[in-house]
């Protein structure tokens, strides 16, 4: 089985005015390709720290962090940027689209920083926009879209670089319940198509859709639960499930 991400004995300490804050005290787990993981926990549990580390926005104090087969725990700043551009798809709570760019341009941003914008790639960006249901909004600005539409753009943007996993940070935190359902359905769909998804949330309703729930408490893993309530993969037609399932 190929790994999307593998976390081995990760610790993270912050120095705040002479005091050492242990945000993570040795966390280990694997995320195989095709997995659907929800990381849950109360605030202060180390959730955000873990998210930042998985998102390659920060270095761990100790431990190993494999993305694919590369240990990124000690990668340089530039290398981390490259990894973010090529291996990770971010979806944020507040959408984080760039206001002065159009929908299509927002989707293209990660490609721009990988220097691989071509007419072919641009066509693919359009396809992605269509896939998330915004084919007729390509040249709108984010302010002209509803929250749910903005989050769809963000999801399309997260998919554009064909990442190892999608890292979603409270993706429905700013959405009403109907839109939440829509967006979560989109995530479920993507997972069924074989995309690896790591979801950080404190909402149980959101977290329970994942196949595994990792609970954090005080910088340690409290529990890892295989979620029986998750929609089983067998819902897919047998042959598709086989084809998409990680080997």
């Amino acid at each position: 089985m190929r790994l999307g991400a593998s976390i081995q004995e990760i610790t993270k300490e912050y120095h705040l005015g002479g005091e050492v804050v242990h945000a993570l005290r040795g966390v280990s787990f694997d995320v195989p390709e095709g997995d659907y993981v929800a990381i849950m926990g109360a605030s202060g549990s180390g959730k955000s720290t873990l998210l930042n580390l998985l998102g390659c926005l920060d270095h761990p104090t100790s431990g190993k962090l494999f993305l694919g087969d590369e240990n990124v725990a000690e990668a340089s700043d530039d290398r981390l940027a490259e990894i973010r551009a090529s291996k990770i798809g971010f979806v944020f709570q507040s959408f984080n689209l760039i206001p002065q760019l159009t929908v299509l341009e927002n989707i293209e941003v990660p490609l721009y920083y990988q220097r691989r914008l071509s007419p072919k790639e641009r066509a693919r960006c359009k396809e992605l926009a269509e896939m998330v249901g915004l084919g007729n909004r390509l040249y709108h600005r984010p302010t002209q879209l509803s929250g749910g539409q903005q989050q769809r753009v963000a999801i399309a943007r997260a998919l554009v670089n064909d990442p190892l996993f999608i890292l979603a940070d409270e993706p429905t935190g700013n959405l009403d319940s109907a839109t939440t359902e829509e967006i979560m359905a989109l995530f479920d769909d993507l997972n069924r198509q074989g995309k690896t998804i790591i979801l950080v949330t404190h909402e149980y309703d959101v977290g329970r859709r994942a196949r595994r729930i990792i609970r954090l408490k005080d910088g340690r893993i409290e529990s890892i639960i295989d979620n029986p309530q998750a929609k089983p993969r067998s819902e897919l037609p047998e042959d598709v499930a086989k084809a998409k399932a990680p080997q």
């Binding site: 998102g55 926005l57 700043d77 530039d78 940027a81 490259e82 973010r84 551009a85 090529s86 971010f90 984080n96 689209l97 760039i98 206001p99 941003v109 990660p110 920083y113 990988q114 943007r157 670089n161």
Partner: peptide, 16 residues
């Protein structure tokens, strides 16, 4: 600032 954060998260290097 936020836009800079977004761009960095999406893979912009410092020199970008």
């Amino acid at each position: 600032t936020r836009e800079i954060g977004i761009r960095r998260a999406l893979g912009a290097k410092r020199r970008d």
